[in-house]
């Protein structure tokens, strides 16, 4: 026991490093992490990486096949597909980030509160989540976007509205196992308020599984966003959103395969990457493996 390093300063950084190392040790999740890293870099340096203006129309150069100045060819208005894909990463990341930031806290708060408080409150909250869960997510988002009006922000709101219930369910199920523990009893004996127990004792315990679920959820979010874009209800035409690119490319698909292939591959690759990282994260944060690693 005495050989243990004293934890000084930032206590969060060490477990974070451990998780990162565990992810990199596992080839599939290392691959996923690399793709996500690349995605972030591409989004950050999009203006440097793009060879053309993603919105520049060039009617003399429409539907050019890949090669010869245009890496992935051009679309029906002569816009460079590679540059549009590069700028599209920003839109994809924005959707993922905003949806996660909205859904994570909502799901966590509703789930832990209804699990810990229980009783009538729990029943009401869970029936509400049941109502949301009983619709297919895409159909429900379609309905929301149709009501709110088609735009990128509304698509984000619609996706967020449909993806919090599974998170809340998960957080509630976890809370039910933690509320009976002795450390929660000890906190109650110390006079801690319900809010304090939920925030300080229960939420930290639910966080790993919620983070895993959110990461796995990101793949679905990308697909739903692309689906909404494809149906013309997400990002609107001049924006280089991948789903919208496929939607417009569909009409020229037979003669000009590159219009749909490259955005399709991008969607596939990114949602695969998030799935792989989510799986890796589950392995890394699994409590049994966690104690195995924590004990030196």
């Amino acid at each position: 026991m005495t050989a243990l390093p004293r934890s000084t300063g930032l206590p969060l950084l060490r477990p974070l490093g451990n998780i990162l190392r565990a992810l990199l040790r596992n080839p599939p999740s290392a691959f996923g992490l690399t793709i996500i890293g690349l995605l972030l870099l591409i989004a950050l340096f999009a203006p440097l990486l793009a060879t053309h203006d993603p919105h520049a129309v060039d009617l003399d150069n429409t539907l050019r096949p890949p090669g010869g100045g245009h890496l992935f060819g051009t679309d029906e208005l002569g816009r460079d597909i590679y540059s549009r894909l590069v700028f599209g990463t920003r839109i994809t990341l924005r959707i993922i980030a905003l949806v996660t930031v909205i859904v994570g806290p909502i799901g966590l708060i509703i789930g832990t509160a209804s699990g810990y408080v229980g009783g009538l409150f729990d029943r009401i909250m869970m029936r509400i989540t049941d109502i949301f869960l009983s619709f297919p997510a895409l159909i429900l988002s379609l309905a929301f976007v149709a009501a709110l009006g088609p735009s990128l922000n509304n698509a984000i709101i619609a996706i967020a509205l449909t993806s919090w219930p599974p998170i809340a369910r998960l957080a509630r199920a976890e809370t039910l196992t933690f509320r009976a523990t002795d450390y929660v009893a000890a906190a109650r004996l110390q006079g801690a308020s319900t809010l304090r127990i939920i925030v300080r004792s229960i939420m930290p315990m639910c966080l790993p599984s919620v983070v895993i679920r959110l990461t796995l959820n990101m793949a679905t979010v990308i697909l739903t966003a692309a689906g909404l874009g494809f149906l013309g209800l997400g990002a609107q035409p001049p924006l280089p959103e991948w789903g919208a690119m496929i939607a417009t490319g569909r009409r020229y698909m037979i003669d000009s395969w590159w219009l749909v292939t490259f955005p399709g591959l991008a969607i596939l690759l990114v949602s695969l990457a998030f799935n792989l990282v989510g799986d890796g994260l589950r392995d890394a944060l699994d409590p049994r493996q966690m104690t195995g690693r924590a004990m030196p």
Partner: peptide, 24 residues
């Protein structure tokens, strides 16, 4: 509540379950 907490405290059976695993 405050007075009760200062009058009675409890030590639990299982020291592995009575301390919050994420709290120093």
């Amino acid at each position: 509540l405050q007075e009760r907490c200062r009058s009675v405290q409890m030590v639990f059976q299982d020291p592995y379950g009575s301390l919050h695993p994420r709290q120093s």
